Computed example of a mutant assay.
Amino acid sequence: MNLFPCTLVYVDVDAKPGPNSTNRDPLSYVSQAICLNNSLRRVGMPTLTIMTNAPALVEKRLESLPPEKRPAVTKLTATIELPKNTPFYAAHFKLDLMDQLSDALPADTMMLLLDADMVAWLPLDHTLIERCAEAGLGVYDISDQVFPAYGSERVVADLEIVADGRLANPRWYGGEFMLATPASLRRLVPRARASYARYLDESERLRHHGDEAFISAALNALVDEGQTVVEVGAYQAVGRHWPGNNYRDFRWFCCCSFIHLPGGKYLLEKEARFVEFAPTRFWRRMRHAHLRGRMRHAAKRVVRMLSAERLATLSAYALRGVKS
């Protein structure tokens, strides 16, 4: 089974920037994609394809690279419409990307959909690729991160609203990684379009917005109907890292095939300035960013603790005044 690594770069200067984006350059994701492509080449994977609604702008940004080291560029046919102030606006167009590839890819090739703010760290395990090919879908289950953070009842409620029915075992799937055969995409896309329509209709009731909401709802519905999915996170095919977060021991990420850095986009943009991806250099910078994040988290905890103590003291003084 062949792999088709691809990423979405949707350019719209009038749209609201992503919540995790600090660079206001609408083409900053191209720089991240350059880094991703360099890391893919290092581990012996196929060239990354950037699917974009603005191919001329993207190709101009890539002009300075040697032709053999550039990502490929394919025009995305965008069909969906939604308010431009919607959180994670650009990510919604992954639905159009999946739809386009469901017909464009040959039967022996799987879509490997990746977010641009990722690096390939190790080659994907061949046995895992085979399992995903047999099942049709390989997805990244991040329920253990999302459910505790937002409350399982709220997350499940959002999923079932978008799915338009009760789900047997609701799961939340990360949008940064998906392996899918063309046949499975042809099953998934119609369900995802139906979920997307309900997602738009019910958006004011939902706490969660973005492609993960309606794609997860569609995947859950397919699973309830008997579709098998391979949970790739258990195989460390991908790990999501936030600087300073204690969810995983930092060393755990060095055994992942892909590392997603939604809070470290600037690290990827810096690394893209180099012709080749250097793991040692990148790991050192990633580790420094992680340690700085730990310090920020610690400082915030101290401030919260001191604020709580001060509030308790003021309350105690006020209570004494009332009693006297």
Rank of each mutant, 00 (worst) to 15 (best):
His92Met: 06
Ile129Met: 07
Lys94Val: 06
Asp96Tyr: 06
Asp96His: 07
Asp117Pro: 05
Leu105Lys: 01
Asp141Arg: 04
Pro83Thr: 12
Asp115Val: 09
Met111Ile: 04
Ala120Ile: 02
Gly136Leu: 04
Ser102Ile: 01
Ala104Pro: 01
Arg131Gly: 02
Phe93Pro: 07
Gly151Gln: 12
Trp121Pro: 07
Asp117Asn: 13
Leu137Val: 11
Trp121Met: 14
Gly138Trp: 06
Ser143Cys: 05
Asp99Pro: 05
Thr127Phe: 05
Gln100Leu: 05
Leu97Asn: 05
Cys132Val: 00
Leu114His: 04
Asp141Ser: 03
Ala91Asn: 12
Ala107Ile: 01
Met118His: 08
Leu114Met: 13
His126Met: 09
Leu105Tyr: 00
Asp96Leu: 07
Ala91Phe: 04
Pro87Ser: 13
Ala116Gln: 13
Asp96Ser: 08
Leu114Arg: 07
Asp96Lys: 03
Asp103Pro: 00
Asp115Leu: 11
Ser102Gly: 07
Tyr140Phe: 01
Ala120Asp: 08
Ala133Glu: 04
Gly151Glu: 12
Ser102Val: 03
Gln145Asn: 13
Lys94Ile: 08
Ile129Ala: 01
Ala107Gln: 05
Leu113Gln: 12
Leu137Tyr: 14
Tyr140Met: 02
Trp121Ser: 14
Pro148Leu: 09
Lys84Gly: 04
Gly151Ser: 04
Trp121His: 15
Leu112Cys: 15
Asp96Cys: 08
Met118Val: 09
Ala104Thr: 03
Thr127Tyr: 10
Ala90Met: 08
Phe93Ile: 13
Ala90Leu: 11
Leu124Cys: 10
Ser143Met: 05
Gln100Cys: 06
Val119Leu: 14
Thr109Leu: 02
Leu95Tyr: 12
Ala120Trp: 02
Leu95Asn: 09
Arg131Cys: 06
Thr86Lys: 12
Ala91Lys: 09
Val146Ile: 15
Pro87Ala: 11
Glu130Ile: 00
Val139Ile: 15
Ile129Cys: 06
Asp99Ser: 14
Ala90Gly: 08
Leu114Ile: 08
Arg131Ile: 00
Leu95Met: 12
Asp117Trp: 05
Asp99His: 14
Leu112Ala: 13
Pro148Ser: 10
Pro83Met: 11
Asp125Arg: 08
Met98Trp: 13
Ile129Lys: 03
Met111Ala: 13
Leu122Thr: 11
Ala90Cys: 10
Ala149Lys: 15
Arg131His: 07
Ala104Asp: 06
Pro106Gln: 02
Thr109Cys: 03
Asp117Glu: 15
Ala120Thr: 03
Ala116Arg: 08
Arg131Ala: 10
Asp141Tyr: 03
Asp108Leu: 02
His126Ser: 11
Ser143Ile: 06
Gly151Phe: 10
Ala116His: 08
Phe93Asp: 12
Gly138Ser: 08
Ile129Ser: 00
His92Tyr: 15
Ala149Ser: 14
Val119Ile: 15
Asp103Gln: 13
Glu134His: 04
Leu128Asp: 01
Asp117Gly: 07
Ala90Trp: 10
Thr127Ile: 05
Leu101Pro: 08
Gln145Gly: 09
Ser143Thr: 12
Asp108Tyr: 01
Glu130Trp: 00
Ala149Leu: 14
Leu113Val: 02
Ala149Gln: 14
Ala120Lys: 03
Ile129His: 00
His92Gly: 05
Leu114Thr: 09
Arg131Lys: 12
Ile129Asn: 00
Met110Lys: 02
